[in-house]
């Protein structure tokens, strides 16, 4: 997976060995799916409660959930008659990786500033 920093002044690129990158990127590119992830970051939830947070149709929510599940960002556990969606533990490690990217970005900003002012 190749990640580029969002800021145009930064040229650093992080490479990791994740194969379903397109699936993950596609899953994260949608605001509804990002909101679902954010909602699940507070704890697992049954699909009804999740769906209740959005104004879009239940089948549309199901499609979003399916995509997130394919991207391995969320999982589904069946407890009795209830289906609970949860954020995958892997997602936490990804957060750590992203925090690393965050600091890379900050250091790049520091570099740009220090080199500009020292001329």
């Amino acid at each position: 997976m190749t990640r580029r920093c969002g800021d145009g002044t930064i040229g650093n690129t992080m490479v990791t060995n994740s194969e379903p990158k397109d699936v993950v990127f596609r899953a994260l590119a949608d605001p509804v799916r990002r909101e679902i992830l954010q909602s699940l970051s507070a704890g697992s939830q049954p699909v009804n409660r999740l769906a209740g947070r959005f104004t879009i149709s239940r089948p549309a929510i199901s499609r979003h959930l399916k995509l997130l599940k394919q991207a391995n960002l969320i999982g589904l556990s069946e407890v009795g008659r209830e289906n609970l969606y949860y954020l995958k533990d892997d997602a936490l490690r990804q957060l750590a990786a992203w925090l690393e990217t965050f600091w890379n970005k900050k250091l790049s900003a520091l570099k740009a500033l220090a080199e500009k002012d020292s001329k």
Partner: peptide, 16 residues
């Protein structure tokens, strides 16, 4: 969690 919305995800969105 803040990083998801304000930094990480927009960045991924851009990359995507």
């Amino acid at each position: 969690a803040g990083g998801w919305s304000s930094f990480v995800l927009p960045q991924l969105k851009q990359a995507a």
